[in-house]
Design a binder for these strands. Structure first.
Lengths: 334, 334
DNA sequence: AGCTCTCATCGAAGCGCTTCAACGAGGATG
DNA sequence: CATCCTCGTTGAAGCGCTTCGATGAGAGCT
């Protein structure tokens, strides 16, 4: 294991000079810099992370708490996590993966030990038990998702309220008057993860303004369960001509069921989805959809977090504006 | 920030005593231990990770390299990652999330800096460029997946060869003579990620022994692409009565297509899938399947890795035996 | 020539912890 | 009663790095 001191000896300078070459915190003459850099290369030197962390009290690590849940659409989580990791690297940070399992204790452990300089929380609940801890700490943090009370917190999320509104608007514009919303699993609503409720909120209030009737049904996993919910919806409101689907698992069963019933998409029935782009593109009918910008959320979360670490950041909620992409699943009402 | 020294002062003992209470590496009298533990609680002490890493040259961190790819079934990756993280915690380790983006350089960086004590690599290719580095290092590592040359490496994986064999056997037992294999995306085969090829190998050689005809087709993403492949298969070999599907995305399109053609599953056609249990259970027909034991793989990888860190481990390949679960998608040949 | 000022470099003091050799106090032993 | 252990505890020496105050060498000025 090569140390700073060895590099210094090899380059014929002092240890502090090598340190300054590495950090750039003091001016170094070109000749010295080149000499040191060459020694580093020749010896294959890598600064020791522990020593660095101890001396500078910065670990250059960001903690990322991801949920363990299986009732959420996993690829989105994964995409966010990967975006966080790669963006963090461009700022010189590594990412520590924490699962929700330890709960609030994990927050305390990581902050207390100085293992990480900052943290990102995913899957935040409206009244998350980790929030008090987060507020009482001076460790920077960013939430992906929106709790009920965002005071003193930095949050990044898709603007789900606007997303809901956008979906109704699109259907309304196409002349649909009676629409059904196929939501996430009931457990998601019970848990009070805000996004599902916010979508519904935005959707309902815009629908009211536009004079549109809305029927909402949560929808659990499993092909049969989904089919049952859909059948019930079509039973209760046979006049339903537009669907908003915020549940990746329900997409194919819905399309299959409609096909089987002889209702053509988009000629007879229109479908607007809220889902990752990949799902929308690969479905059996290319879906008109508002995509969930997983990468963008991960990236923004890191950017904000780094800003806060550097003392530049401010506490604020930043909502990403939804974009509706027109594909083949929504058309004029019959 | 509370330090060891402060705890020692508060408890009226020396710093080293506190350290030994924490590590248990020397006998401590019950009275002293209780006193120290109380001081720790009262002061809210958390050992500083950096200082610990520096002094002990152990970071208690495991690095996990996950692929960035999108052509693999993401939930499996995520499940493995989560299993790794939770299992690691039970051994006192945290997990550092590395994406494949940096490539082999990441291995060098992490090893060199002492950031992590050991690493787990996922999505290993047959001739992976990270392997030479891994072999030249004395840092413990475990691969999830199997490269071409496993000498000097510890690997954990599902026994895909046996999995392939198991699938044919089941279909053969039910009287099927002509079967088709719907594989992963062509890119997966091109990349020489061993598992797909190994499955095919095991499947083919067992098929030969049993006198079964096999037609294999890779199958890319997207509903239409999948439908096209399936249509072609049924064109080329109309007598095909059994399918082995190793591609989660193709499951539903296959079932839908068969339905549309009036071929009933499992009365007319049988399907055996190689996929995560959740997919098998939630499909429109409950699938007879060999499940991919993601959790088990993550868990075993960590157990082996910890053993190696502690000097107990040995280099070896451990293949998890496949288990075929009979559900509703495979029946006697017509 | 003497002075100041700037720029590049250095030395030394920690950061908070682990670990090792050493030590004192009893208890057991001859 | 002297001697040897053993057990529990301590002090001090680092681990490899950052950072701050200090220093020396030139350059620029009067």
């Amino acid at each position: 294991m090569v140390t700073l001191a060895e590099v210094a000896r090899h380059a014929g300078v002092s240890a502090s000079t090598v340190s300054y070459v590495l950090s750039g915190k003091r001016p170094i003459s070109v000749a010295t810099r080149l000499q040191v850099e060459q020694s580093i290369r020749e010896l294959g030197y890598h600064p020791n992370a522990g020593a660095r962390a101890l001396a500078s009290s910065r670990s250059n690590i960001i903690a990322l708490m991801v949920p363990l849940r299986t009732d959420m659409y996993v690829p989105v989580m994964m995409e966010i996590a990967v975006a966080v990791a790669t963006t963090a690297r461009t700022h010189g940070y590594d990412v520590l993966l924490l699962t929700g399992e330890e709960g609030p204790e994990a927050v305390r452990r990581v902050t207390g030990s100085g293992l990480a300089d900052a943290m990102i929380l995913m899957d935040v609940e409206l009244d998350d038990e980790r929030l008090p801890l987060l507020r009482s700490t001076d460790q920077p943090s960013v939430l992906i998702g929106l709790p009920a009370d965002t005071s003193g917190l930095t949050c990044v999320d898709l603007d789900f309220r606007a997303t809901g509104a956008l979906c109704v608007e699109h259907l309304a514009m196409l002349g649909h008057r009676d629409i059904a919303v196929i939501g996430e699993a009931p457990t998601v609503y019970e848990r009070h993860t805000g996004f599902a409720e916010r979508t519904l909120d935005g959707l309902r209030s815009r629908a009211r303004e536009l004079g549109i009737r809305v029927l909402h049904r949560p929808c659990g996993g499993g092909y049969d369960a989904i089919t049952a919910v859909l059948t019930r919806i079509l039973d209760e409101r046979p006049g339903t001509s537009g669907f908003v689907v915020q549940n990746e698992q329900a997409v194919e069963p819905l399309l299959a069921l409609l096909r089987r019933q002889g209702r053509a998409v988009p000629e007879d029935v229109s479908v607007v989805a809220i889902c990752p782009e990949q799902v929308a593109v690969q479905a059996s009918v290319r879906l008109t959809s508002v995509s969930i910008p997983a990468q963008e959320m991960g990236r923004q979360a890191v950017e904000r977090l780094v800003a806060k670490i550097d003392g530049r950041g401010t506490d604020e909620v930043s909502l990403i504006a939804p974009e509706l992409t027109v594909r083949a699943s929504a058309g004029a009402a019959p």
